[in-house]
Nucleic acid binder design. Structure first.
Length: 113
RNA sequence: GUAGUAAGUUGGAUAGUCGCGUAUAGCAAGGCUGAAAGGCAGCGUACGAGGAAAGUCCGGGCUCCAUAGAGUAAUGAUGCUGGAUAACGUCCAGUAAGGGCAACCUUAAGGAAAGUGCAACAGAAAAUAACCGCCUUUAAAUAGGUAAGGAUGAAAAGGCAGGGUAAGAGCCUACCGCUGAUAUGGUGACAUAUCAGGUCAAUGUAAACCCCAUCUGGAGCAACACCGAGACAGAAGGUUAAGACUACUCGUCAUCUUCUAAUUUGGUGGCAUGAGACUUGCAGUAAUGCAAGUAGUAGAUAAAUGACUAUCCCAGACAAAACCCGGCUUAUAGAUUUACUGCAAAU
């Protein structure tokens, strides 16, 4: 399954955020919960209060790109939601820091193969 | 050369690797799914954010509310004149006032003897002006006249000069301003000229209420239409009531309607050729109109146009389509074009 599956509905997001385990990195926070499928679903949520649409899109794209590069190495059957850490200024968004965060978090959560 | 004014254009580039969305009578010729129709996936190809996409401030298309119909009112908006436009609170050309040496710029530019209100502080007084001063009267107290001068203020009863007077005052006169009438020019706002007016009866504020003129039904693509699933409880009224998205009146519609409670969801259309853009010609001062020609696949739905690496330079600002158009407003690093103005120098 090559395409990235994404969460669509608000209740799906709420479910992950309420019941999932969370891990905090330097720039991103990740919520993870098991689902019963044989694939991973991800969602990216960035508050509209933080910045305007252009910055939001840049953050989303960098997170999505990083996930895409790592997705083959992950165990399957999880729902993952990425959040931006509110305390970090949005101008400092950096591809490599997110990459480190993600590897660290996924290995800590034990879903990295 | 320098300082400006106005109107425009542009809004990092190149290469490599990996990816995303839409389309596809291309390839593959059957990889997955399905009873089938078909759908999904792969490879290739093409296309894939802005000048403001933003704010959501106006106007319109489109949709529903009855085929949105008529009148009155309310509400809201606009407010010099003429024109443009589908329409506008927009644009163009003018007028007036103000600013700038100038190019040029700015203006929420109707009405203050229709009425009501407000004018802080200061000041004697904020609209039937007398605090000081001046003059007359009186021995003095007092009584009266007076808006020239002082002081306060954003604003103090046209300005200035002469005459006049007890002192003063449009009290009188000239000039300027103001108001009105007439004539001429202009479609008009208005301009110019002449004449008359000192009862020139009187501050500002209408971004206070208000008055006048003109316009204005409501809600919005989460509109709306269709397909398919889930759920489907209770009460009231029923031929004159209730309802049909501001109120009232009239008129129309319809047979089931209304209320309370509970309440989920998927797909398709709407949805990309439009009062569109550019070029040329003609008409017009112009906005714009008419004619001919040219180019042209963004279309998502937790939402595509990206990421990384390398090189270059002036080191990339503001900022992401979400039904669609016409505007307005606000944000914006840098680069660049044209026309014009002032100053300086040279010829």
């Amino acid at each position: 399954m090559k395409k990235i599956q994404t969460l669509k509905k608000n209740y799906e997001f709420q479910n992950v955020l309420k019941n999932g385990k969370f891990y905090i990195g330097k720039q991103i926070t990740v919520y993870i919960i098991k689902n019963k499928k044989e694939s991973n679903d991800i969602g990216i949520a960035i508050s509209s209060k933080l910045c305007h649409a252009v910055q939001r899109n840049k953050i989303k794209r960098k997170i999505r790109e990083n996930y895409r590069l790592l997705s083959n190495k992950l165990e399957k059957g999880y729902q993952i939601v990425f959040l931006w850490n509110k305390k970090v200024p949005v101008e400092q968004v950096d591809f490599h820091i997110i990459n480190q965060d993600m590897q660290h978090i996924f290995s800590k959560a034990g879903i990295l193969k």
